[in-house]
Amino acid sequence: MRLPPFAYERPRDLYEALELLNTFGKDCRVLAGGTDLLVRMKQGLATPSRLISLKDLPELATINESDGFLNIGTAVKLADILAYEPIQYRWPGLLEAVKSVGAPSIQHFSGTIGGNLCQDNRCQFYNQSKFFRQARQTCNKAGGNTCFAWKGGSDKCHSICQSDSAPILIAMDARITIKSKNESRTIPLEELYSSVGERPLTLADDEMLTEIHVPGPVPGAGCAFEKLTYRSSIDYAVVSAGAYVQTDGSKTVNARLIIGAVARGPLAIAAVEKTLKDRTAGDEEAIDQAGREAMNAAEAFIANNITQPVEYRTQMVSVITKRALSRATKRALSHTDVSEAK
């Protein structure tokens, strides 16, 4: 498969990159690694006339810790996150999510954290070759007005957000910095996602995600990421879940659960916090109940947008939720003192 023609820009500093983004707006795309963008360009789904590469911007490729936050530049390669040693015992949920993306050959070079968060939504009827797509009407996401994934059709796009790092980072309450030529803002990560299938990110045409800020672990809290796939590598999730559980040593005091790969954006299940709060940490009945609630909440969003049947994915939301919550709780109970944890 050949790529259509485009101009490749390699700015030397962030200012130059933002300047280019400001000048060319929606005619250009930011290129971090290319795992998602390059394939969509080959399929004719993205047709930028210009790519702005972040590969010469070392300021976007650093990992550091400051003021209790883990700060990850948008162009940091997934392999570099895995190699950052403190992540092993301080942010194990993030480690699980990053490890599950692609395979080592992708994590080395083309898989970046910013790219993973900013990848476009996917659907089995959309992410296909031109030839495949020509056999049907144009769908909502491609500029038409029908949806093949939603039973009976729909005037909205029902593609799904397949980012693996988003559910766990949102569960961990991560924040992101977004920059444009004239402005810089730091917002909670969940605000990056619009839950609109046609345009899943809230970024303006001249804006770029530059940094991710992950809060450090607190004593008594734990997180975990769970992903169901058919193959153990290079596979998108059937269902994924990021869980954060905080305990006071015996009772759950706070919990967050985000389900990935079922809705147009990462799906926060608010009922789970209410269910688990003030219950004994690790209580199986409470976790079972949380699983059912997650399944009920997710059911309304699941469309036929990947090859696995809708009914199966719905049931699996409960299973994956329970696994993620159980593991996060286990970690929370064993990490009562983070300074000693190793």
Binding site: V39, P104, S105, H108, F109, S110, I234
Partner: peptide, 24 residues
């Protein structure tokens, strides 16, 4: 596959195995 999924296009660049089909 041409999409970074199958690894048939793997080459070694600066010591790391990468998919050359999604490498400019």
């Amino acid at each position: 596959c041409g999409q970074g999924e199958c690894g048939a296009c793997t080459v070694i660049v600066d010591g790391l195995a990468v998919n050359s089909c999604i490498y400019f």
